[in-house]
Computed example of a mutant assay.
Amino acid sequence: MSTKLELPIQEFTTPYPVTAREDSSIEELLDIVKNLKVRHIPIMSNGKITGIVSDRDLRIVSALSAREKFLVRADDLMTSDPVTFQGNTSIEDVILEMSEKKIGSVLVADEKGDLQGIFTVTDALDVLIEILRGRK
């Protein structure tokens, strides 16, 4: 008999992640990934989540010429309407959806839609470690 893991996602979320604007250049996004060592960048407009850019997205455009890169902005590259959960959502529900959709991160927002954090596959592995060690 299995029981559902009712821990809220907010317990394992990286709070207030580094974000970028829709008009951020490819170079700005690459700098964020390289210097801050993040793999997912939420894209914001007027304080609201509009998309997400991954390091994989940026690797795809790295083959472009310097002139072509200059013309591409975050909103050209981002995944619009990224998967987003409220902080009180069960960790099990979040991880199951990430697995089913094969996505590397989800955003966590409050009831007004304001970004509160990001939950990644690495965070999910941390949850697994905690469970296996009997801490949760």
Rank of each mutant, 00 (worst) to 15 (best):
K136Q: 02
I131T: 03
I41G: 09
L64P: 00
P8R: 00
E100Q: 09
S90K: 08
L29V: 04
S90E: 07
A20K: 02
E100G: 08
E130D: 11
L71V: 14
E100V: 15
R67P: 03
I131H: 01
S80A: 14
S25E: 00
K48G: 00
V72E: 02
K112A: 11
D75M: 07
K136E: 11
T14N: 10
S24D: 05
S65Q: 14
R59E: 11
S24F: 03
D76V: 07
R73V: 00
R56F: 06
P82Q: 14
D57A: 14
S65V: 09
A63Q: 09
L115P: 12
L107Q: 05
F12V: 10
T89P: 01
E11K: 13
G104R: 05
V53R: 02
K4M: 13
L128T: 15
I41R: 05
V72Y: 02
I49A: 15
K37I: 01
V121H: 08
I60Q: 14
V121P: 02
I52S: 03
Y16R: 14
V127E: 04
L128S: 14
L64H: 05
A109M: 02
S99V: 13
M44T: 08
I131W: 01
S24N: 01
L128A: 15
M1A: 15
T3V: 06
D23H: 09
S54N: 06
S62W: 01
N46L: 03
D55F: 05
S24P: 00
L77H: 07
T89I: 06
T89A: 13
V83Y: 15
L36R: 10
G117M: 08
S65E: 10
R59G: 08
T122D: 07
L29W: 00
S65A: 12
I60W: 10
I52K: 07
S105V: 10
K101N: 09
T3R: 10
P17S: 06
I52G: 07
F119N: 02
I43C: 13
V33L: 11
L5N: 12
D126S: 12
T120C: 05
I118N: 04
D93R: 07
G117C: 06
I32P: 00
D55H: 07
S2V: 09
E92Y: 01
V83Q: 10
R56T: 08
R21I: 00
R56C: 07
R135A: 03
R56V: 06
L29K: 05
Y16E: 15
